[in-house]
Design a binder for these strands. Structure first.
Lengths: 249, 249
DNA sequence: TCTTTATTGATTATTTTTGATCGAAATTAA
DNA sequence: TTAATTTCGATCAAAAATAATCAATAAAGA
């Protein structure tokens, strides 16, 4: 049992139980206490654990589960059919914006083989398209670890320097009163993308319709079309305001 | 049983069990221990495994095997010790630049638990630090799928809007004539990072010293310090130009 | 065929790792 | 507060792994 293997075991246990003791470590790995101590010290030097008297503790107590992926996992079928429809609106040569919504993310799989340019602030979108035919452009700025996307002033300014034919965006809610978001940062990005594109598509599954959350950040006129799987009756009030409705097949 | 066949067997076993021991290898393949050792050393040079005392381990058992990491895997031990040294130069509260070099990438593991801000144009760095204590800032612009990093005019402008205490950068070569790169895009980014930081560290393993590749893009004075595992004698001409030399422990 | 080159193994010296001991420092108990 | 206990780090010696050197063998080319 060499140092590298022990190091792994130590970090494994720390990840599970959060702490470790010298004596227990020495018995478990069948090494002397001084060696156990040396191991912990070395790992502490690299900042991989926090050395305590008689043992060690985990440094980073909580690892964020990428709740984005979880969120993205909800209602996949509906989202996929929305995105399939959205993909028909995209032609080779297009330059498009994609924001960091979970529905928009599902669009990636349908455009991988298109010769287009995608401008996005979403890290998952970048990963998904990184080795595809799509040419990528990343919005820079502060990275929001919770949303896995770039936000902030610099990001906003950065978007204003680009111009795209189409934007594919998500929101947290939509009603005849307009568009709703859960955060101001996200709302600012969505607005910027919409303003800088010639035609803006809103991708929203049935659950988003008539849902009015925290922030009413824009009028319906910000977008040109809505792609949705919702019942056409529920969309009447939106349609009346001159927004095109694209229903999934 | 020639080297090629042994190499295959070694890598096979590593893929299955994740580790291998010299003694076991020698018995199993009916070769002497020194030959087994030589095999492992050679494979480690190519970055195909991580040499440990008494055996070897799979390259990055914890990390995802992206193409990039494989490239980064060359000379891991040297790069890791360089980065361990580099990490000692970083304190909580620091704002630092990190570019898209493969050595710089290895720095991530040593700074995951530091409370710092990292500004980078490298996607692997973002990926690695995305769920750490580090606060991230992404340089925006055109995404270069080959280097998995952001480059171009916008990226360059974006960097100029930031200011950091320290920059940790890589190059393709360094000699008394200055710094060398394999592409103009990369050179521009490196230069920008260096100019916008108060103190610039160059991380370069021994192979980079006195290597003069395609583009001589900057004078040595662009950087303040070099962190390297190279022999001190080879660094004399660099030291004479007033660059600080930090040798690995 | 002979020569050259590369590979392998044996031997030895060096380096690294490990464990034991002991005094110092920190923690706990009185 | 002091005393007892535990943990710690420094030092040193033993053990293991390694690198360096050289000779033997195998392979390749002239």
């Amino acid at each position: 049992m060499n140092f590298q293997k022990r190091k792994q075991k130590i970090l494994d246990q720390l990840n599970v139980s959060g702490e470790i003791e010298i004596k227990q470590l020495a018995t478990e790995l069948d090494i002397s206490e001084i060696t156990a101590r040396r191991d912990l010290n070395q790992l502490a030097l690299d900042g991989l654990l926090y050395r305590t008297r008689g043992g060690a503790m985990k440094v980073n107590p909580l690892d964020k589960p990428t709740d984005f992926v979880n969120k993205a996992a909800q209602n996949i079928e509906a989202k996929d059919s929305i995105c399939r429809k959205a993909a028909t609106q995209i032609n080779d040569g297009d330059i498009i914006f994609m924001d960091c919504g979970s529905t928009v993310f599902r669009l990636c799989q349908f455009i991988k083989n298109k010769k287009i340019k995608v401008i996005t602030n979403s890290l998952p979108v970048v990963y998904e398209l990184q080795s595809s035919l799509v040419s990528l452009n990343i919005i820079g700025g502060e990275f929001d670890a919770e949303r896995l996307a770039v936000h902030g002033t610099i990001a906003h300014e950065h978007i204003l320097r680009y111009r795209a034919a189409k934007a594919f965006l998500g929101v947290d809610g939509i009603s005849k009163k307009g568009l709703f978001a859960n955060s101001e940062k996200e709302a600012a990005i969505t607005t910027a993308f919409a303003q800088q594109s010639n035609y803006t598509y809103l991708l929203c599954d049935a659950g988003k319709i008539d849902r009015e959350t925290y922030l009413n950040f824009a009028d319906l006129s910000l977008v040109n079309a809505i792609i949705t799987d919702a019942d056409v009756n529920k969309l009447q009030s939106i349609k009346e305001q001159g927004i095109a409705i694209l229903l999934v097949d």
